[in-house]
Write a protein that binds this DNA or RNA. Structure first.
Lengths: 339, 339
DNA sequence: ATACAGTCTGACACCGGTGTCATAATGTCG
DNA sequence: CGACATTATGACACCGGTGTCAGACTGTAT
């Protein structure tokens, strides 16, 4: 199998390299006859352009980087799957790069990444999507980026998020409608903007229904299962015990369920539990978790598609979009028993 | 920030491009003085070689591809994390490429991947690590590859696996030592070689302890939670009901636990359940699952390291290694109650 | 026929490195 | 001290594409 390069194609078709390149890139000013002829040779020789050479000439790599630092593996998996879909569609590749937001050398780390990989663009997933420091750095380096699930509004970049506040509001209202008034809340990681939004949705729903907000019902988590276990302990020790718990993600909700089951507190009869995200675990446990389905894959897919669009032809208009979240009811929530 | 290329370094240092290149690649035949001088200029100008140009000249991309088709997200996450560690250490990048083993166009798909990305090597994760068709194709195309968790022995490629049979044997023996004799087994996906190995470990342990193997206790799964749920149904409907279930991975074990809990069968008092892999879910549910810890990250890390080593200097000797699996005891298994 | 704009095409340099080979400088040995 | 091997260095082509620009070839208006 001999290598087929642009030179062999040009020679075979009896035209210049440049003309072949024009056909390759759909450039104008090629006569239909010539174009046809070259395309035929592509077929005949089964020619595929070398992306590396192309990259060198255009100073592009056709690679998108995905930055993450997230305790939820399933979240990352979903992010990747959305990003991959967009990449494959546009013949880009996806390079994954986990690193720590709080690492002292975050900027150095990303700098290193950029110089060793020449990424064409970067998708920032939470908590990076809200890191002003990182964003400033990328701007300075002139690297295109897109932000997923970020709270920063009105800047001039690509940003897709889902409506966390609305989701949390609906979920809280669902619990209230079931008769619950003592609803504990477990916060997420303070570095994630979703944390504040979900908390705010919870508070607003309480307010709307005239239920007093009580700080003692709120525990600090960080989205990890482990933090959920700690919060669960604090909450289940409360006297009187709340009749419902709303955890800011499904992993923490699962931790609450585990502890409740260990203590032989019946869920949902004695305690309703709800999560957020609709992670796989929400339906892998019994009772299944009532939760909010967040379109993580779709958010990321759109973010990457817009990013690629932006790379090929930088426009002025920033692309911003908010997707809706949706309530999923399962067995873990039930009307409060009045006993 | 002006671009620093090999030309500017050469000019600044007062040597030729080629000499700079020599220093860059640690080639011999550079006088210590010159080397020193050039290295100093590297520092001074903060020079980083452009990997794309380097790739073009050497026909390399410094990218490793990772192929997967696996229903277990946590498995994939762990694979990635091991692969990333090795890649970062050697300044390679990791490109992830999910695709379907049973897809008609698997070969086309991989062919496409190779021509659009010029991968330097590929890590095959199950079930690809056992696909003779794919391996033949990679050989023909002369693409280096490493196989993770494959059963194929004695071929001349890099292969790392863990001792599935031994793990399953130990786990089964653990159940037998707890007094169980009616031990149901849920098989994994037939395309994965681990499936056969785990099954064989189960059978050998039964044989060693003089327990008759009964086919009716065996259900066919495919590693997905869903298949575990189906198998769980079949097993829990058996009369008399087995006193223990050994599922070939933790997701399927979790499905058994869910159904048992739904049916108010007490675990582990009335039913012991064990899984395999030590996936996160094993400790996120109650009772925690007794399982076998497989060093997935380590296997993949070693596989990628050997692959990279092989790429830079192809040796003759195939690298093959088998890592041990380890029993983790949690709450889901208990001595059989004689009631 | 002449001028001029618009379309098509190819020669050539260039992206930023590496490989080959010739040559200069140095060292070794009889 | 000359002959020869070894080490150090650079000139130059090359990897496989793209960008620039000049020139040839159309068509249309004068």
């Amino acid at each position: 199998m001999k290598k087929v390069t642009i030179n062999s194609v040009a020679e075979y078709a009896g035209v210049s390299k440049k003309t072949v390149s024009r056909v390759l890139n759909n450039e104008p000013n090629v006569s239909p006859a010539t174009r046809e002829k070259v395309l035929k040779v592509f077929e005949e020789l089964n020619y595929k352009p070398n992306p590396i050479a192309r990259g060198l000439a255009q100073n592009r790599s056709f690679i998108i980087g995905c930055l993450y630092d997230n305790p939820s593996k399933s979240y990352i998996t979903r992010v990747q799957s959305g990003a991959l879909e967009a990449c494959q569609k546009h013949s880009y590749n996806l390079l994954i790069h986990p690193c720590e937001l709080r690492g002292q050398d975050l900027i150095d780390n990303v700098d290193q990444l950029l110089t060793t990989s020449r990424l064409d663009g970067i998708v920032l997933t939470p908590p990076f999507s809200d890191s002003n420091e990182l964003i400033a750095f990328l701007k300075q380096r002139n690297i295109p980026y897109a932000r997923v699930a970020s709270a920063i509004e009105g800047d001039d970049s690509i940003s897709i998020r889902s409506n966390d506040e609305q989701g949390a509001f609906e979920l809280t209202e669902h619990l209230i409608n079931l008769g619950h008034t003592e609803i504990a809340f477990i916060k997420g990681h303070p570095d994630h903007s979703a944390t504040e939004n979900r908390f705010s949705g919870y508070q607003k729903a309480l307010a709307k229904h005239g239920i007093e907000y009580r700080e003692r019902l709120v525990a600090e988590g960080n989205f990890s299962y482990h933090s959920g276990a700690d919060s669960a302990k604090a909450i289940l020790d409360l006297e009187p015990r709340p009749t419902a718990v709303f955890a800011s993600n499904d992993y923490m909700a699962a931790a609450v369920l585990k502890l409740a089951t260990q203590r032989e507190i019946k869920v949902p009869e004695q305690l309703s539990i709800a999560g957020f995200d609709n992670a796989p675990i929400a339906r892998h446990i019994w009772p299944g978790l009532t939760t909010i389905a967040q379109p993580v894959e779709e958010m990321t897919r759109i973010a990457v598609e817009e990013l690629i669009k932006h790379i090929s032809q930088p426009q002025e208009a920033p692309f911003q979009q908010v997707l809706e979240a949706k309530l999923i009811t399962r067995e873990s929530t039930k009307a409060r028993s009045d006993s």
